[in-house]
């Protein structure tokens, strides 16, 4: 399995290491089970600013400001919140801003909550419609290379890039009624 320079083998730790290695310091996020461990690691890092959002588009805006101010950031959200970002994403395309989004997926692999399916199935399409380049990763061995390439692409070529973390990777949430 690929490891970062810190030797991390857990993919969540690898994403954190990639943030550090690529000078990604502003973390904008909504609460999310798929990102919970990564968020904790970023919050514990005194050299990172971690901001909890009320809605995802605030994070797109915030990271536009971060970039204007000379700082790299990343947006950690769920696929259900991608739809909230559309109007804010227009700024990225018009102004050629970079954005690194890490999106934990719902509504796809074995989803047990039907309300999640429409947005999960449309996530890639709506991102691409707004000019966001989409990478998807569905196994742990590919996370490191994918997130690293996404970071390089976003910041070196100044384009918005989303990495979709598939449910097959994160684990599908099962809903079982209490007995």
């Amino acid at each position: 399995m690929a490891t970062t320079t810190n030797g991390a083998t857990d993919w969540r730790d690898q994403i954190y290491d990639i943030f550090r290695e690529n000078d990604v310091r502003h973390i904008a996020h909504v609460p999310d089970g798929g990102h919970a461990k990564l968020i904790k690691r970023c919050e514990a890092d005194p050299e990172m600013s971690t901001v909890t959002l009320t809605t995802e588009e605030e994070g797109v805006g915030m990271l536009i400001g971060s970039w204007l101010g000379g700082t790299r950031g990343a947006l950690l959200i769920q696929s259900s919140g991608v739809g909230n970002c559309m109007n804010a994403l227009s700024v990225l395309r018009h102004g050629k801003f970079p954005l690194l989004m890490i999106v934990s997926m719902r509504g796809t692999w074995g989803e047990g909550m039907p309300w999640q399916v429409p947005m999960g199935q449309a996530t890639r399409e709506v991102l691409e419609a707004m000019g966001v380049i989409v990478y998807e990763v569905d196994n742990a061995a590919d996370v490191h290379a994918t997130v690293e390439a996404a970071s390089w692409l976003a910041f070196d070529s100044s384009v918005p890039v989303a990495v979709l973390l598939a449910q097959r990777l994160i684990g599908t949430k099962k809903f079982v009624a209490a007995a």
Binding site: E58, G69, N87
Partner: peptide, 17 residues
């Protein structure tokens, strides 16, 4: 553009500088 994003962008700039 992006009506509703002004204060959010200001937040990112404030944190960066």
């Amino acid at each position: 553009g992006a009506m509703g994003s002004a204060a959010a962008i200001g937040l990112g700039l404030a944190l960066a500088q």
